[in-house]
Amino acid sequence: MPHDPYKALYLHIPFCVRRCGYCDFATSAVERDSPVMDEYVESLVMDIRRTSREGELGALETVYLGGGTPSYLGMSRLSSLLYALSLSMHLTPEVECTMEANPESLTEPMVRDIWALGVNRLSIGVQSFDDEVLAVLGRAHDADGARRAVAAAQTRFENVSVDLMCGIPGQSAESFRRSVEEAVALGATHVSVYPLTIEPGTPFDRAVLRGEMPEPDDDAEAEAMEAAREVLEGAGFCRYEVASYARPGFESRHNTAYWTGAPYLGLGRFAVTMTQNAERRMRVQDGQVIDDLDARQMAAEDLMLAMRMARGVEDAQVERARGVIGPEVAGAFEELAALGLVAHENGRWRPTDLGWLCGNELYGRLLDLAP
């Protein structure tokens, strides 16, 4: 079907040096010299060239290499990927090109080379600056390695993001707060904070079922998220999305594309592609349709996605949704306001801090407008 141009490209790199105990992503641990990675990168390069020939890359505004651990590919494979991108879509400075990296596989020479090849944003999976917490998570790096990785990134990159986790077994409130403070002190321009989630089938899930690990404490996680907000906003960061803070001008344009309903193309194993036109929105993964929304469901989803962001939704968007779905749209926002989950000011509905903490209730109510 004819669809709107893709605005964002996601390249999935499903390899890591090891799998962490909490991870349920579509990744596998392989040896660094494994031919499996060579074959995968060759296939991904072919996909990039094919979609370029088909005219699908001409309107891209952001590119994101995620995983897995893209930095684990090593420079030779990364060069092949980035060179193919440069030839296929003109990887100019105006295109935000993010690469995820883990501290154990990010080096200064790699930083210099990927910068020269068009990457202009690095997202580093630190999770904690506490060695004991990192050991619980099963990470392949220690705190000093994380500090060195951030410093290496800053030899070329101004736009450096750090990922942190809270709610980890054995992690004290003080330990988490120190990690947030250290991310600020090291000069990160963007920080994402994620509560630990125990996913079914993971080693952490089995440990919980055996009674060897406590389940995450919702109250402790909420307190940690509030502590992160206090530290980061106090340091001049703005919370622009439910889990992310940035210094002004360093918000992730790629992540924002997801929350604003921009069509995106996913290439690589298990990557998701979202296509849409005025009447229909589809998400496809490995050739299988995993989401097929009509105009009413699209309008409800757009409201839900927008409420993940601090700017929320303007009255005009609510009115457009009301025209598609019906008068119950206004009622839903009034109900959410009565519960303290959203607030209306200056012509916009925005999530409150309570709304972000009770996201399932907020987002579920909006999706229920068009089930």
Rank of each mutant, 00 (worst) to 15 (best):
D113N: 12
Q127V: 08
S128T: 06
L106G: 02
G145E: 08
V136F: 09
H90S: 15
V95P: 01
M99V: 03
R112A: 11
V119M: 12
T98E: 14
I114P: 04
L134M: 10
R77Q: 12
M110Q: 12
I124T: 06
V150R: 02
R148D: 07
A140E: 10
L122K: 09
L73R: 01
A152Q: 00
V150N: 05
T98K: 14
E108D: 11
L73T: 01
A143S: 15
E94R: 15
A151G: 06
V111T: 06
L122F: 11
A153Q: 09
S86R: 15
I114Y: 04
E100V: 07
A135C: 12
L117S: 11
T92W: 07
T92A: 15
L87Y: 07
R139K: 14
V95H: 04
E104K: 06
A135N: 13
V119G: 04
R148H: 04
S128A: 15
H90Q: 15
S79P: 02
L137R: 05
E96T: 11
A135I: 05
D144C: 10
V133W: 10
V111F: 06
A149Y: 01
M89R: 11
L117F: 13
V136Q: 11
P109Q: 00
A151N: 07
E96I: 09
F129Y: 10
L87E: 15
V136W: 07
T92S: 15
S80D: 13
A149V: 00
S105V: 00
S88P: 01
F129T: 03
R112E: 12
T107W: 05
H90M: 11
L134A: 08
C97M: 06
M110C: 09
T107G: 02
W115F: 13
H141R: 00
F129E: 00
A149D: 02
R112V: 08
L122V: 13
L122W: 10
Q127M: 10
G145Q: 07
T98I: 09
L82W: 13
L82H: 09
M75L: 12
M89F: 14
L137I: 08
D144R: 15
A84G: 05
L87M: 15
S105Y: 03
I124R: 13
V126R: 03
I124Y: 13
S128Y: 15
V136I: 13
L122N: 03
V150M: 03
D113E: 14
L82I: 10
L82E: 02
L91T: 05
S80T: 01
L85D: 04
S123L: 11
